[in-house]
Computed example of a mutant assay.
Amino acid sequence: MRRAAWAIIGLAASGLAMGQEGSLHASASGEVRQPGSAVYPSGARLSQVALAAKVNPDAYLPGAAWLRPSLKEVQLRLKTGVVFELGVIRMAAISDGHEALGVSAAAFQAWIASLPVTGRRTSVVLDPDQLEVSPPDNWPIKEGDALFYPRRPAGIRIVGAVEKPCSVPLEALQDARRYLAACPSSKAADPDMVFVIQPDGTVFPQNIALWNRDPARVLAPGAWIYVPFNRKAIATSTDGRFNEDAAAFISTQLLDTAGAP
């Protein structure tokens, strides 16, 4: 009898352990009616977290963010590399007497260094209704994942090789390059292109010079324009992908809204 009792207890404990192993924690914040962490079964998908959070009708879905802790390590390496290369650009500019490039690199380096490493997975759909009807968009979640739903912002931000970072009002159907008039580029800027970063984190290079101009690209509220550093001026100081890496790190940032994790 005693042996049978211990066997029953052992089976119960094993079942409890299996139940714990078969669950995970995920959370939601921002413009939701049910913020906080909750337990989900192993294999749960984005739609389950989004629906459980009860996203507010006025949440800005194009700027919603999916945060995954396991992505922070690679994003930290990306940030560290960008900050390091900016230091190299700055020192080389000082050595060569390129004052404008040195000043712009120092300012952008300080700004990048101040940004958080978020773990955001970019270019994903987080509209709860769409997730339910679109299996390819309804990705499985993992332990510690979080969803953030911001409010709709009013403008766009311009950073990079500019005299100073700008936040400018959004104008309906205006091409990205038209915003540059409101935020003067520095002498360190590449004259031929910019990077457009939409609120979901998707990055688009856009040629803007007369000789290579791309079709107009309309920005959504909360988008970024990254004005890159002149590729020729920084060619000997970087690995050739500095501007792409800088734009990629900016794309991981959340919209500046109360309630961001």
Rank of each mutant, 00 (worst) to 15 (best):
A26K: 00
A5P: 04
E99C: 04
F84T: 14
A216N: 04
V227Q: 11
P136A: 10
P221F: 02
V39L: 13
S95M: 07
L78T: 03
T118K: 06
R213T: 09
A53R: 11
A189S: 10
Q109M: 15
V227K: 07
D58Y: 03
A52N: 15
D190R: 02
A13K: 05
E132N: 15
L101Q: 00
S42E: 14
A38M: 01
A17N: 10
S14I: 13
R213M: 09
A7M: 13
P35W: 03
A154W: 09
L78Q: 08
A146N: 07
P69L: 01
A216M: 03
A4P: 08
V103S: 05
M18C: 09
E163L: 14
P150V: 08
A247Q: 00
S114T: 06
I234L: 02
A44M: 03
A107T: 04
A64Y: 11
V74W: 08
K142E: 14
A248Q: 11
A223C: 12
P165E: 01
I158Y: 06
G102Y: 01
H25T: 13
D129L: 12
V82S: 02
R121W: 14
W224L: 15
P228V: 05
L86V: 00
G144Q: 12
T118R: 05
A26Q: 02
E244C: 04
E99F: 05
P215Q: 02
G97I: 00
P35K: 03
S29Y: 07
I156R: 01
K164T: 12
A53D: 15
F204Q: 09
G36K: 05
M1D: 06
E132W: 15
S70F: 09
E143V: 08
S37E: 15
R157L: 03
S114A: 14
